[in-house]
Design a protein around this nucleic acid. Structure first.
Lengths: 157, 157
DNA sequence: TAAATAGTTCGTGCTACACGAACGATCGAT
DNA sequence: ATCGATCGTTCGTGTAGCACGAACTATTTA
């Protein structure tokens, strides 16, 4: 047998696992704030990527455009985001975070402290910060639409 | 207003976001291997945490015990895991990864290379390795059952 | 003017799960 | 030896998240 038993460890399954645990923990905490997890995900994306069209948001969140409508209806009726018509293309809506939205995100993040403590309890504070930084950069890296990368597939496995 | 606008950045939403992207990307790749994402998550947990009861697996995966049965039925009929009665408590099933299961994980991880490249494309190879290490340690940290921590809630936010 | 595009609304269907009930096998306590 | 609790199993039911398609309006582009 070969010495190395194929060191092909992928983050995918671990990401799924931790995300599930985090989601279950977060839901009960977020409910009193009138938010679902997906709302907070959308708000966070919006905060990190700035103004964006609904189509762009659908691409980033990887959800169907028709479902973006309902998601934004929730957030807009709560005053957390704003839909303005794009001046350059009046078909488009430019979605942006409001001041209230930014505040609500901070409140939610604060409320999530316990959930994060439970799920990431094994990590030291500086490690959690490192994790956050990696996740944020990975998230922004494929922000606009990764879908365009579907063509290239240099599978050298 | 205070100088610091509350630097309460949480990893939760980013975890959800990236996990979703990763899951969507992974599904099509895993299908030819006869696996769903949740199967690979279970196998990975099983590999990392060693033998475990079904109840313990339900706690770690945070899914209902009745659904663990079906999940393990899939994996066992594919020869990837084994159910043996515990010698100390014959009510229990001790679930363990088989050699074929370990092999299949490696195959799956290999096949997931493209998906990971797309989702984590913004990270350098050593950063991805770092991310994997953090995720794995966080995952193992709350392995047995975090549920016991539900009682304590020293919310000092 | 015609065709394509962004967003909206509605309906349909699928999948993942939670949850409860009922059952057999087994353990623990009495 | 008996009884209640526990583990795993099977079945059924319900719900939530989403994808997908159709039809429509407003707008841009060819």
């Amino acid at each position: 047998m070969p010495a190395e038993p194929a060191d092909e460890r992928r983050s995918g399954p671990l990401l799924q696992h931790l995300a599930r645990r985090m989601r279950l923990r977060s839901e009960s905490v977020l409910t009193p704030l009138g938010l679902r997890v997906r709302h907070l995900v959308a708000l966070t994306v919006l905060r990190d990527s700035g103004d964006i069209s609904q189509q762009g948001l659908a691409g980033t969140l990887q959800i169907d455009g028709t479902n973006v409508v309902g998601l934004l209806n929730d957030l807009e009726s709560a005053g957390l985001v704003e839909r303005r018509r794009s001046p350059t293309d009046r078909r488009r809506h430019v979605v942006s975070l409001t001041g209230a939205g930014a505040t609500r995100i901070r409140e939610a993040e604060c409320a999530l402290a316990d959930a994060e403590d439970e799920v990431l309890g094994a990590l030291a504070p500086d490690e959690r910060e490192l994790l956050y930084d990696l996740l944020r950069r990975a998230s922004q890296g494929c922000a606009p639409t990764c879908t365009e990368a579907a063509t290239e597939s240099p599978d050298a496995c």
